[in-house]
Nucleic acid binder design. Structure first.
Ligand SMILES: Nc1ncnc2c1ncn2[C@@H]1O[C@H](COP(=O)(O)O)[C@@H](O)[C@H]1O
Length: 583
DNA sequence: CGTACCTGCGCC
DNA sequence: ATTCCGC
DNA sequence: GCGGAATGCGCAGGTACG
């Protein structure tokens, strides 16, 4: 199958935002696709080369695409960058600058889907000295052998950013329609996908077999299950309303979610996005080896602890564990514990369909009675039925270094991949009372991409250092803007553009597209302040070489027209908030 | 051999 | 992670 | 409400480069 056919369909899809129409286009692609490459085309549309838990990465993103486009077109990098800033999509840039290629290149053999897929596979699998050059050469050869239309979508596929408004669920709809003629079967496909997240394989099975084959896909050990997710509630009563009778409450721990698969001595660990992280946690493996079971799949949150007092450490500490080398040393330096909160599979049986309360009972049976190491514990869980009980438990969670609680429906099944009201996250922050907002000055910006073209995508913010009369960077913010407000802010900022960073701005290690005079002040909220190796607010005050940054910053929607830059929240105030949070 | 840049992936 | 938008 | 696509911070690893 020629890649051009795919590209032409994509081009048609760009003209609509209707999901029904988009799905129909996908159906037309899938119908045309020979069965033996159905998996490849599905992976390509997903912007991947295989499922998350086994495929390798391309190692190609914006910068390297810019370089390849420069090589192919013979134009300077800066020109490509400028066009990128203007158009906001590198595929579009390729389309524009490679326009005259069709005429200049003599009749070339049309690229096939296999050509593209296999080349990308090669790019993903090469490494070592000189590999970047080789990767670039592969991309260049793909682009040289394609029309500008094909080039556009090759670039988008490499970047995993089709921006057509289709993703996994549209693919599921399309697969249901293509192979069974009935979109209702999408639910069946979705169920299978949630326990076997390999859409390419699912497409293969379905196209060669029938919907019954998909129905018979079940949870298997060592194939990660898409994790159940939580909806957000802003207060305890909202949570209680969603549940008949008593609810269950647990701390919401700031760590990393791990799904553990075990069968006899074999153990594997998966992250929330289904990456295999078994090698990162030898200590967890050792602990699990002591658990006497035939098999199981359980889930929990790992978190770094201070071994002296067993207190939870900040997320940053845990991140030190994500490494490939010197695992022994880092394991000793950053001990963790695993807080188990669910059980999905036990003794050869899928347990996701029994109520949470019963799953918990099983967890207690397995982990509560055995002498396990201090590495693994069952997460504390209480029954709650009144608002005050939840409030108290939230307070307790905060005292323990958590940012809120999870409220769970005791009679709920484990619904893989679903974000539903069976699990609810409640953070103090959502109530809007506790977290102070801060007012920060915009000192720089990045150009927006995709739907944000022509506006700024992210704004560099700074606090005010009253002693030195300078502005210290603290974070970028890119969320919380409605399209209109962002347009408005972009206009306002454009009146203050300057050539270089303003002399009164203390810049750390941050690259921006545009600089402004410090004038516009925005109201920002953020649940937490972290130590930062790149921002300059309160630099060296806590730790040499480190300043402070906001985690999860968001714009509240309020432009503080009433404030001048010097009225922004000061470094001193930020530092005080940080200090307060350490307690 | 150290640093800079880029990429991928964790995230209450 | 959070947020916004079109369907 | 769903699905999709914008955007945040920090860390480690890989490669290029001086
Ligand atoms: N007790 C808990 N139960 C379930 N998830 C938890 C718990 N504590 C922390 N988490 C994490 O919170 C995440 C859901 O929050 P969010 O990603 O904000 O929707 C889960 O994926 C877990 O990693």
């Amino acid at each position: 199958m020629n890649f051009l056919e795919l590209a032409e369909t994509f081009a048609r899809m760009e003209k609509t935002t209707s999901r029904l129409e988009l799905t129909d286009h996908l159906v037309s692609i899938l119908k045309k696709t020979p069965i033996d490459i159905i998996d490849k085309i599905v992976y390509l549309i997903q912007g991947k080369l295989g499922p998350d838990y086994e495929s390798s990465e391309l190692g190609i993103a914006d910068k390297l695409i810019i370089k390849s486009l420069s090589l192919v077109s013979g134009r300077p990098i800066t020109e490509i960058q400028n066009r990128y800033s203007d158009i906001g999509d590198l595929g579009e840039v390729a389309h524009n600058i490679l326009t005259n290629k069709i005429q200049t290149t003599l009749i070339h053999q049309l690229l096939t889907i296999e050509n593209v897929f296999d080349t990308l596979l090669k790019i993903a699998n090469i490494s070592g000295t000189g590999s970047l050059d080789v990767k670039l050469r592969y991309i260049v050869s793909l682009l040289n052998n394609s029309s500008n239309l094909e080039a556009k979508f090759i670039v988008k596929l490499i970047l995993g950013n089709l921006r057509l408004g289709i993703a996994n669920f549209s693919l599921l709809d399309a697969m249901a329609l293509t192979f069974t003629g009935d979109k209702k079967n999408r639910r069946i496909l979705e169920r299978a996908y949630n326990v076997y997240s390999d859409l390419g394989k699912i497409a293969l099975i379905l196209s060669k077999g029938s919907i019954e084959d998909i129905q018979s896909i079940s949870i298997s050990l060592f194939i990660p299950i898409r994790p159940m997710l939580a909806e957000r509630v802003s207060n305890p009563s909202e949570a209680l309303e969603k549940i008949d009778g008593d609810a269950l409450a647990e701390f919401k721990i700031d760590g990393e979610r791990i799904q553990i698969h075990k069968k006899e001595k074999k153990i594997e660990l998966f992250t929330r996005s289904l990456e295999n992280v078994t090698s990162n946690f030898p200590d967890i493996l050792t602990a699990f080896n002591k658990i006497e079971t035939k098999d199981l799949i359980v889930e929990g949150e790992v978190v770094a602890i201070n071994p002296a007092n067993n207190k939870y450490l900040p997320f940053q500490a845990l991140m030190r564990r994500r490494r490939k080398y010197d695992i022994q040393e880092i394991t000793a330096a950053y001990p963790v514990i695993l807080n188990l909160f669910d059980l999905l599979y036990y003794n050869g049986i899928d347990k996701t369909h029994i109520p949470l309360l019963q799953r918990r009972k099983l967890l207690v049976k397995i982990f509560g009675t055995q002498k396990i190491t201090d590495k693994i514990k069952l997460i504390d869980q209480i029954k709650v039925s009144r608002i005050e009980e939840i409030e108290n438990y939230t307070e307790k969670a905060l005292k323990n270094g958590c940012e809120g609680v999870m409220i769970k429906n005791p009679s709920s099944q484990y619904r893989a991949g679903a974000r539903e009201w069976a699990w609810m996250k409640l953070k103090k922050e959502y109530s809007g009372e506790v977290t102070d907002s801060v007012d920060l000055v915009v000192v720089g910006a990045l150009h927006g991409k995709g739907r944000r073209v022509g506006k700024y995508g992210a704004l560099l913010l700074a606090s005010y250092d009253a002693e030195k009369d300078v502005f210290c960077t603290i974070c970028k913010v890119g969320t919380g803007f409605t399209d209109n407000v962002l347009l408005d802010i972009t206009d306002k900022l454009n009146k203050h553009i300057i050539k270089h960073k303003h002399p009164r701005v203390e810049l750390g290690n941050t690259k921006m597209d545009t600089w402004f005079e410090p004038k516009i002040v925005l109201e920002i909220i953020s649940p937490e302040i972290t130590l930062s190796p790149v921002y300059t607010t309160a630099i060296n005050r806590m730790k040499p070489g480190y300043g402070l940054a906001l985690r999860f910053p968001k714009f509240t929607g309020k432009i503080r027209e009433d404030k001048s830059a010097e009225d922004a929240t000061t470094v001193k105030e930020i530092f005080a908030i940080y200090k307060g949070q350490l307690k």
